Simulated assay, not measured.
Amino acid sequence: MTDTVSFGYEDVAPAEKTARVGGVFTSVASSYDLMNDAMSGGMHRLWKDRFVRRVKPRAHEQILDMAGGTGDIAFRLAASGASITVSDINPAMLEVGMERAAKRRLDGLVWSEQNAETLTFPDRFFDAYTIAFGIRNVTDIPKALREAHRVLRRGGRFYCLEFSTVTWPGFADVYDAYSHHLVPRLGQLLARDADSYRYLVESIRRFPDMPRFEGMIRDAGFVNTAVEPIMGGLVAIHSGWKI
């Protein structure tokens, strides 16, 4: 862990990043899904469907969905009959997810406030670990990846859905202009919070590219790692196995 970490385009102390990220998600919790629709044109729903198909959840499995506060991934996973634990460091996000689950009459989910870097679950407890659009907000990513490896059983699988680096020529420039100029305006219009959405865009730019992040997953102990780019790397599904 270095003396500073990225918070958007700023370099700050690790404790400051943790606190400021907490503030961002407390601010945007109630409008988070609305903004996901606005920013992606609704495509985030298709990406999440594809992600869960890759995970292949099965009945009676124990699955940890980390940074899953609003329940979007957990609701999809739960349809398989698997036992889902939804964890998030931010209680406001968990509150939104629990309210959404109650409206859907989904009462079988476990909700747990957790820091991805210091999970309280025992070793070798889960069959699968999922994290969607959350890993880039973790202060110490390598530590979180090691924790993911620790709580997985042998043969367990790790799946991560995250924004990445666009590699398609031309599209990268268009997306860059859109995200830097339009997304904060959407944040101001829909959530009255341009700064939080400016951070979310900047955090994508500072996140490791696909080969580098795959290397970090391997360094945490996972094998048979793979990456599946979507829309030229706009988002990517990363995976690995514990043996």
Rank of each mutant, 00 (worst) to 15 (best):
L94D: 00
A132T: 06
P122W: 03
H149V: 12
W111H: 00
P142S: 12
V138A: 02
P122E: 10
E162A: 05
T118G: 04
E113Q: 14
A144P: 11
R124D: 15
R157A: 15
W111S: 00
R153K: 14
E95L: 14
R104W: 12
R154E: 15
A148C: 12
L94N: 01
K143S: 14
I141Y: 09
V151D: 01
L145E: 08
E147C: 03
R154M: 15
E113T: 13
F126L: 08
A101Y: 01
C160I: 07
A101N: 00
T118V: 04
N137T: 04
R153N: 14
P142G: 09
F121Y: 11
G134C: 07
T118W: 03
R153W: 09
M98Y: 06
Q114R: 01
L152Y: 14
T130K: 08
C160G: 08
D107H: 15
V151L: 02
T118L: 04
A128K: 14
F121K: 08
R100S: 11
G156E: 10
V138C: 01
K143W: 08
A128L: 02
F133I: 02
K143N: 14
L109V: 07
I135P: 00
F121V: 06
T118E: 08
L161Y: 05
F125S: 13
Q114G: 03
R124P: 06
W111V: 05
P142L: 08
K103A: 15
T130W: 11
I135T: 05
A148P: 10
G134H: 02
Y159N: 06
N137L: 03
G108M: 09
R124A: 13
G156R: 10
E113I: 11
E147M: 04
F133D: 05
L161A: 06
I131L: 09
D140I: 05
C160V: 08
L106Y: 13
I141R: 10
G155H: 07
G97Y: 02
G155S: 12
E117M: 00
R136A: 05
E117Q: 05
